[in-house]
Computed example of a mutant assay.
Amino acid sequence: MKNRLLAFFLVTVMAVSMVACGKESAEKAETKTEKTKTDAKPVEYDVDEYVTLGDYKGVEVTLTGTYDFTEEGLDEYVSKTIADASVYVEDTSKTEVEEDSIINVDYVGSQDGVAFDGGSAENQMIDVAGNCAAGGTGGYIDGFTSGLAGHSVGEEVAYEVTFPEQYGNADLAGQTVIFTFQINYVAKAIESKADLTDDIVKENFGSDTVDEYIDSLTEQYKSKLESDYENDVQTSVLNTIINNSKVSKVPEELVQARVDMYLNLLEMQCKQYNTTTKDYLDSMGQDYDEYVENVKSNLNDSLTEELILEAIAKKEGMEVDAEGYEKFIANLVASTGSKDEDAFYEVYTVDNYDGKRYFRQQYLIQKAVQFCVDNAVVTKGEAEEN
């Protein structure tokens, strides 16, 4: 099932951007460039001139996911959650390090007999075969774990390792050092409920007993099923409504206003790191003009879908209700660290598109989404096999 970029596409992108900037971003709204302070004519359009609505009330959709609670499904969820946690404990049945062992070690890196900064650690769980932290994906420097297989628990092992020429620390780049390992124990992964004990749960999963932990996972699983169902209903209904409707085009001035809003926020974020958007993109090997065109294309797609929902809101006579909108905007303001609502709006304001207008419009679009979902006819079909 295709997931569309719907009404909250830009809100989400911008909120993430603003969280990265923190509270300082809202304060910097007062020092925005003159570009955003002009008296440009606000973007105006009649959505009915661009949108031809198809059926949007009572649309029929069939879901093929798994949404009903079963013990089998719970067992799979529990096992996956436990395995994904990458918890390892001592395996007392093994005393020798093998090529594919997970082991717990302390290590010290030294050069000319002197330990160097950042080269020592204790109680580290490492994957010998993967040359990485157990359960991780980022690797150590080449050869870091190569001399451990064949040694025993309790043994101290030392051997040379050479840092790559392009290593980030210039003092160590290309240098050969000695890493000395103390092998504490061979470990095993906790992969299922059967591997759990109260002590393991208490130390690694935040519960006092195995039963308490499984009870919490059961509730999580039920919530996941409900969330999956709600999300899939919304996606299916919106896909159907959007496919039923037509948008002749998106007003160019609306697209440009959203592009300006996006780029303004991105520029604000870059300033926090003493750079510009263009310089940042250059450093990432991206062409600025090409990047802007991609942003414009993505926003045009998103706006196509927003216009359909905006037309539905208009046809149904939906309005911004004070109580609902207050909760909606308060959550956004709090999540971005803005000092108050006005400062929050100002950050999102550009030449001809006001931040407050933008978020009020998004609120109406969300109401339209919920209206369509509430009026849909949903059928559960046979779940697709993985």
Rank of each mutant, 00 (worst) to 15 (best):
V233N: 03
I308K: 01
T277F: 07
V19N: 10
G73S: 09
S146F: 08
N264V: 05
S283Q: 10
M268K: 04
K356V: 08
F8H: 09
Y56M: 03
V377P: 01
N331K: 15
L309R: 01
H151T: 06
K339V: 11
S192W: 05
M268L: 08
A121Q: 15
D232C: 06
G54N: 11
T349P: 00
L332F: 14
D112H: 11
D46I: 06
F179V: 12
I178N: 14
V108W: 08
Q256S: 13
D171Q: 06
A173S: 07
I141F: 04
L196E: 00
V161K: 14
L5E: 12
A313C: 02
F179Q: 07
F69G: 03
D208Q: 09
V378E: 00
L238S: 01
N131F: 04
V11T: 13
E96F: 00
C270Y: 03
A189F: 02
A170V: 05
E305M: 10
S120G: 10
A194M: 07
D84A: 15
E49Y: 01
G381D: 03
I308V: 13
G58T: 04
G337T: 02
R357M: 10
V177H: 07
E230Q: 14
G65T: 08
T349C: 06
I178D: 13
K80M: 10
D321E: 14
Q286R: 13
I200D: 05
E219T: 13
E156T: 15
Y159Q: 11
M14P: 01
Y291A: 09
T209R: 10
K367V: 01
V105M: 08
F69W: 08
E98Q: 07
V19S: 11
A189K: 13
T36W: 11
A29Q: 07
L172D: 00
M318Y: 00
D340A: 11
D282M: 06
S236G: 04
G138S: 15
N104V: 03
I365S: 02
D282R: 09
G317R: 08
E156Y: 14
S17M: 10
F371L: 10
D374A: 06
Q124N: 14
G139F: 06
E156A: 15
N294D: 09
F144W: 15
K94F: 01
G317T: 06
I102D: 02
E72F: 05
A158K: 14
M261W: 03
D112T: 09
A129Y: 07
T70H: 09
V153I: 03
D84K: 15
S17L: 13
K249Y: 11
N169L: 03
E203R: 09
E323V: 11
E226S: 13
E385R: 04
K28A: 06
I241K: 00
D39N: 14
K356F: 07
D289G: 10
K356A: 14
D198S: 09
T277L: 12
Y288H: 12
D117Y: 12
L238N: 00
L53K: 02
C270K: 08
E49R: 06
N204C: 11
V292P: 00
